[in-house]
Amino acid sequence: MPTITEHIIRLTDHRDRDLLELTLSKALIDLLPIQRVVIARVVSEEGVKRWLEIATLDHKGGGKVVDPLRVDFHGLPLIDDNRERFNCLMSRDRVDFAWAGEDGPRINYLPLFADSRMEEEGVIEIHSAFALGDAQMGAIADVLHVFRNMYNLLAYSDRDALTGLLNRKSLDDTFYSAVLEELDEGAQAQSRAQDATVAPGQERRHRVPPNYWLGTVNVDNFGILSDKGGHLIAEEVLLLVARIMNNTFRTYDRIYRFGGEQFAVLMHCPDEALVLAAFERFRANMEKFNFPQVGRVTASAGFTRITADDSPSTALERTERAVDYAQHNGYNKVFSHGDLVRKGLFGDAPKIGAVDIF
């Protein structure tokens, strides 16, 4: 059986935060006489919070890991549907739920994170057949402490220093480790299905490649705003734009700041109309917000569907062309690159854009 030292090495070997929850679950299952580990994170959309079980693992080897980008939000349980989880989250303390008598099976609920950062709320459930002793609870606390330290370290390297949003490095990592790999697998599955021989009357089924979308957002006339208001006012505007984005998009959408006035969003969505609606909500929220000492500030956005042949740069080139079109046609608009191409408003040739550093 692996030792606690070996599991700590595995936790600290990671360079991908998305794998930490599963590694934490495996460590606890291996080290302790427990039956099941569930890690549940809080996700929200338009102010509604729900539970998403990111990782589940049991002592017999069964389990699952969920991609937050691809969840059905409305099918998830509401945050107060699970009273013990909710109490643990609110108190930031352990909750022991003995559901069949004091000496029988129970679930220990522990806060996944020690602080109260709203973007990182979660609970870890430890299912056991009997009450765990102080030494066993101490071992859980030690492993969880290492997990938190490693998560915060990786989060720091993935975040923009000013706004706390994800940075360009994080976008590149997600592209190459998850999105393109999944798109390529979907395309290959579809190709195999199309090549297969189908008997008369037999229905052909194949996997539809996932629908990933990337959009960029530029604050309109940011240079003028910065020149007039100064550096501190400009920074405050960027912080407020980040807050509006966090309040508008789903918590499992990936929101980035690349530098200067440029932001981005990576999301999974079934069709173009829903993506357009999400960016339009953000544009409208920006337009109606009263920025202190500045007043009205608007933003222009452009988005594109990601293909298996894309790199982060090629997808961003298309979104930047759509943003440029919006800003050359009156600002405060959202355009789909694919829609602009279909309408013949410009061709499909790439344009290399620059990213400012603020």
Rank of each mutant, 00 (worst) to 15 (best):
E320M: 02
L112Y: 10
L276P: 01
K60Q: 13
E46F: 08
L180H: 09
E320V: 00
R318P: 02
L239D: 03
T163E: 12
G338H: 10
Q202S: 08
L153A: 11
D16W: 02
P111G: 13
I255Y: 01
F279H: 01
F130S: 14
N87I: 12
V355H: 15
K26V: 02
F113N: 02
P210S: 10
E317W: 02
T5G: 01
D58H: 13
H206R: 12
S313H: 09
G353K: 12
D30N: 09
F358Y: 14
I357D: 15
S300E: 05
T174Y: 07
I244Q: 08
L238H: 00
Y156S: 06
E287A: 12
R318D: 08
H268L: 04
A315F: 03
A199N: 09
L238E: 02
A141V: 11
D173P: 05
H127A: 04
R15Y: 08
G138E: 09
L266Q: 04
L162N: 10
S313E: 12
L225R: 02
V237Y: 01
A301T: 03
L225S: 10
T23W: 04
T3M: 06
S300L: 00
V217T: 07
H7C: 05
D30L: 00
P270M: 00
F113Q: 00
G344E: 08
L32Y: 07
R283S: 05
G338N: 12
V198S: 03
K351L: 11
A141I: 03
L153M: 06
I9H: 10
R318Y: 08
P111E: 12
R205V: 14
N332K: 10
G133L: 03
D81C: 10
F282P: 00
D310Y: 03
D80Q: 14
E125Y: 08
L57E: 13
V66H: 05
L89Q: 10
D16N: 09
G295Y: 04
E203H: 12
A326K: 02
T314G: 01
Y176P: 03
I54L: 15
L232P: 04
S177T: 12
I244K: 14
L214T: 07
K26E: 15
C88G: 11
H127M: 04
F303V: 00
P77A: 14
L266S: 07
F249T: 01
N246M: 06
Q202I: 07
H206Q: 13
F86R: 05
Q136K: 06
L274F: 00
Y252Q: 09
R17M: 15
L31S: 01
L20N: 04
F346C: 07
G215H: 11
E181C: 06
F73Q: 09
G330C: 04
G353Y: 14
G295I: 05
A161P: 03
Y252A: 11
A27N: 05
P111W: 05
E182V: 01
A189N: 08
N149L: 09
K333P: 00
I357R: 14
